[in-house]
C-alpha cells in the first residue's frame, strides 16, 4: 500500500496525456525524497539498550511540504503562476477552466494538471481547447500531493511565463492538508451547494486565498445567499477574497480574467 496516498496495490496511480497510454507509477516509488526506499531496519537491536527514546519532533507532513517547496521554487524560476483549484465534486471547476482557456488561450500561455480518482474525462475536455494537459488518476487516494504534482510536471513541462492550473480531486476535506507548491489556492463553491458550507468544511476555506462563487445564473432557483456564504467564509478566513461568476453563461468572468492577467510573472 502506498505510504503517501494510501492507494492499494490493485489501484496504481497513473498519469497520462490525452491520446497517450497512461504511465503507471508504483506508489511505493512515488513519495518522499528520491533516495528514499522502503526498507525495514535490518540492524541488530541490542538487548541491553533499555527504553531508549528518540526525541524526534518531526513534522508528519514534512516530506510533502519539502517537495511542495521544491515545486514552488521551480515555478518561481520559470515565472509560472500555479493555482490549486479545490472544491466539492460538481462545483464547475472543469467548466470554469474550459471557458477560461477558450477565452484567454490566445493571450496567455496555460497548462493544466487534472486530478481525479479515475478516467481521462477532464483531461479530454481540457485537451479540446488545445491547451497542454496531463491527467493524474489517484486510484484510491482522495487528494493530490506534492510528489504527484512533481511527477506530472516532469511529463507536462509547463512553458515559462505561463499559468498552471492544478485541478485537485473534488473533495472539500482531504486536499486542504496537502500543499502542492501553488502560489494561490482557489476554493470554488457553487450556489447549488449550501451557503453554510464554509462552516461545515472550515479547513478548506481557511487555507484558500480566493473563493470563486460559481453558477450565479442559478441564484433565482436555489435557496442560497451570496451575503451569507461570504459572511460564513470570512468568519473562518478574514483574508479571503471573493468573485461571483457563472462559468457556463460567462457572467462575471471579466473580473477573473483581469485577476489572472495581473498574476502573470515577468522575468526580472
Amino acid at each position: 500500500m502506498c505510504t503517501t496516498c494510501g492507494c492499494g496495490n490493485t489501484s496504481y496511480l497513473s498519469i497520462a496525456k490525452p491520446g497517450e497510454k497512461p504511465m503507471n507509477i508504483d506508489p511505493m516509488k512515488l513519495h518522499l525524497l528520491d533516495d528514499h526506499k522502503h526498507t525495514h531496519g535490518h540492524g541488530h537491536s541490542s538487548s541491553h539498550q533499555q527504553n531508549r527514546i528518540i526525541e524526534l519532533e518531526k513534522d508528519i507532513l514534512g516530506s510533502n511540504n519539502l517537495i511542495a517547496e521544491r515545486n514552488r521554487t521551480y515555478f518561481k524560476a520559470k515565472n509560472i503562476t500555479a493555482f490549486n483549484l479545490v472544491s466539492s465534486p460538481g462545483s464547475g471547476k472543469t467548466s470554469l477552466l474550459v471557458r477560461t482557456l477558450t477565452d484567454l488561450g490566445t493571450q496567455i500561455k496555460f497548462s493544466v494538471i487534472e486530478g481525479d480518482q479515475q478516467t481521462m474525462q477532464d483531461a479530454n475536455r481540457i485537451s479540446a481547447t488545445q491547451i497542454p494537459v496531463i491527467q493524474i488518476n489517484t486510484g484510491q487516494a482522495c487528494h493530490l500531493d506534492s510528489d504527484m504534482v512533481d511527477k506530472a510536471l516532469q511529463a507536462l513541462m509547463p512553458p515559462e511565463e505561463s499559468i498552471l492550473f492544478i485541478e485537485n480531486v473534488g473533495n472539500l476535506v482531504c486536499p486542504a492538508m496537502f500543499d502542492l507548491g501553488e502560489e494561490t489556492r482557489v476554493v470554488v463553491i457553487s450556489v447549488t451547494e449550501g451557503d453554510d458550507k464554509p462552516l461545515k468544511y472550515p479547513d478548506m476555506f481557511s487555507t484558500a486565498q480566493l473563493c470563486l462563487i460559481n453558477k450565479i445564473d442559478l441564484l433565482d432557483y436555489v435557496d442560497f445567499s451570496i451575503e451569507k456564504v461570504k459572511e460564513n467564509a470570512l468568519k473562518i478566513n478574514h483574508h479571503l477574497k471573493f468573485m461571483e461568476l457563472s462559468a457556463t453563461k460567462g457572467t462575471g468572468m471579466e473580473q477573473w480574467y483581469d485577476f489572472l492577467k495581473n498574476t502573470l510573472h515577468k522575468p526580472v
Binding site: 503517501t4 494510501g6 525495514h40 531496519g41 535490518h42 540492524g43 518531526k58 508528519i60 507532513l61 482531504c174
Partner: peptide, 20 residues
Amino acid sequence: SIVLSIVDIAEEEAQKAGVD
C-alpha cells in the same frame, strides 16, 4: 495517508538507529 507517512518516517529512523 497520515499513518503511512508516519510509518515512512519511523522506517527511516529505524534504519538510522539499526533496529527492527
